[in-house]
Amino acid sequence: MRERGGWRRARRVGFEAACVGAGVVSAALLFAIVAATVWNGFDALSLEFLTSPSAGRPGEGGVLHQILGTIWMTAWAALIVSPLALACALVLELLADRKTARLLRVLLNALNAVPSILFGIFGYYLFVRFFGWGKSWLAGSILLAMMIAPTVTVSWADAMRAISAGYLETARGLGLSTGRVALAVVIPQSVHGLWRGLLLGLARAAGETAPILFTAVALNGVDALPRGIVDNPVLALPYHIFALSQDAYDPAAAAAAWGAAIVLFALVLAFFAASLPLRLRAHEEARR
């Protein structure tokens, strides 16, 4: 009666082996992707690469201006998205009744599901043509901000939700109006949700090409940082890589693309790594 298993055991072993196999494949893919990127791009990486602008021909020179352009656009995207996310989070958690809050969540989910190329096409029509801005870095920042608004909002709203009821009841008990409660208690105590959301959102925004493709970037002939809004595109890492990828069989272009890819990878990684401690905190909060 103590026999070890039989067919039940065989099924378990088969099932678990398949799952572990899948895990191994995933790990191998990750390793392969990172290894390929690093191995290919390592040669192109040098201090000069990082600190000098591109030269005339694609694949020559460095990516300094692309780095600056990406940072410029994402920084502005962060500035634009923060008040919007604050507004949405406050409404979600503090101001709206259950039904409206649910509708707002539906809106945010819908916005989050929109393919990024549609942001690009819409942005092209709205900013480049309708507003007549031509190519503009600001259009890119606005589009990116809208794209990551759901992510930042949800992160901030979750942080608001985790504020203990005790604080809120005390504040209300003191006679503070909702707005004052928001300013005095809710916002200060939940701001880590903003940082967390921003880091996650910017990790995505920094790497996106589709929204900025037709609206905000150019390949060359542009200053490092824009001087105005209208007719002021910037250079950006993802677009740079995208353009070079189309010439990828030219070794110089490929090498430059890999170098830029490592830089972009590192940038995204940095955002992601910075968000980890904050995400751990989110796990703790969720468990309460």
């Binding site: 209300r172 109006s177 004052r180 409660v181 909060e285």
Partner: peptide, 27 residues
Amino acid sequence: MQRVASVPAARPRDAVDLGVRAGAWLG
């Protein structure tokens, strides 16, 4: 973990309150 809004609102609606509300709904 409850929604913040489930803690009942106090009555006073001063300028700050209106400002915050307006700003939020505007966003």
